[in-house]
């Protein structure tokens, strides 16, 4: 494409403040200000995400550093003094004496990283294939959508497990732990692209028959320019809604896989791995090892889900 992006070049410099004002004046922001649910869930999600990002600054210990661990600290209840070392921990310690609070912060990093990366992967793949299928139709459409149909026959968690199982078989044993995170992202992302592709395709089918697309075709713009410049900006709001809900689902999927022992390895525990570890001690009385990671996971998934739910109501695209 030799054309320069039109807007970049024709916008006056005074646009930045007016764009901010436009954003503040928008119906979305208005609806946001009037919805306590949306504001609270946005605050909770933001708090959790920020504390995961800045985990090294907040956490009291680095749970991945073996030198900082003291086995004597094992099974310390929350806010209680350890009988041997005299140390206290906000949320107690696990079997190996790791501070639960710190492991949660670090675990959340892995959960969120896998979640965001998997959704990003699914969004990019889904938009690309959905645009192609919707805009060109014909055999391209049939091929992409039949593939999607076949995959949709299987629940995404099963697809993710299969991909994980196959990848585990392919990678040499010594690299398995290192690769696990990337395999997780690939597995969850690949299992999730279908819904983006379907929504994008549906929206593209509607948009491509609108006359503004005809006008662009009449001028002679190429299909790639029409898809990216004209259609894509008009179909982003349903994608945004699904992406938000998908993020919650991806976090849950990651936790589920890790809980089942086919996800993040114990050397790099995510929230799911922590719950898996904690489950073993729940019935013997060490409830905190499971309780705090579980609460964090719930808070994370719930706040993101509530945001997604609110977004769907406000943007009101015709979604399933």
């Amino acid at each position: 494409m030799t054309d320069q992006p039109l807007s970049a070049q024709s916008e006056p410099q005074s646009v930045t403040p007016s764009r901010l004002r436009r954003a503040l004046d928008s119906d979305l922001y208005y609806a946001f200000k009037r919805s306590p649910v949306a504001m609270v869930s946005a605050a909770v999600a933001l708090l959790l995400i920020l504390s995961a990002v800045f985990a090294p600054l907040i956490a009291t210990t680095n749970p991945f550093d073996p030198t900082s661990l003291n086995l004597m600290n094992g099974f310390t209840p929350p806010m209680a003094q350890n009988a041997f070392t005299g140390e206290t921990f906000l949320m107690g310690t696990d079997d190996q004496g790791r501070d639960v609070f710190s492991t949660i912060l670090y675990g959340m990093r892995i959960s969120l990283f896998v979640g965001f990366a998997a959704v990003l992967f699914a969004v990019v793949l889904g938009i690309f294939l959905g645009l192609l299928a919707g805009y060109f139709g014909g055999w391209i459409d049939s091929f992409i959508m039949r593939t999607a149909d076949v995959q949709l026959t299987f629940p995404s968690i099963l697809v993710a497990m299969l991909i994980f199982g196959i990848a585990k078989g392919i990678t040499p044993i010594e690299h398995r732990d290192q690769m696990a995170i990337w395999v997780l992202i690939l597995a969850i992302g690949l299992s999730d692209w279908v819904q983006f592709a379907r929504v994008v395709r549906g929206a593209t089918l509607v948009e491509k028959n609108k006359d503004y697309v005809s006008a662009a075709r009449l001028i002679g713009r190429r299909p790639s320019a029409i898809m990216v410049r004209h259609i894509l900006p008009n179909i982003l709001s349903p994608v945004l809604v699904i992406a938000t809900i998908s993020l919650a689902l991806a976090i849950i999927a990651e936790a589920t896989l890790s809980f089942l022992g086919v996800g993040a390895p114990p050397t790099q525990p995510s929230l799911g791995t922590l719950i898996r570890i904690g489950q073993g001690y729940l019935f013997s009385g060490e409830w905190w090892i499971l309780f705090f990671p579980a609460c964090t996971l719930l808070a994370l998934a719930l706040s993101v889900n509530m945001l997604g739910d609110w977004l769907r109501d406000v943007l009101n695209p015709r979604l399933k």
């Binding site: 807007s7 005809s214 662009a216 001028i219």
Partner: peptide, 18 residues
Amino acid sequence: SLNPRMKVESIVAEPLMH
């Protein structure tokens, strides 16, 4: 017939640019 996500300026300029 007008792209809702484009400013009027870009809409009218598009054929000229292309």
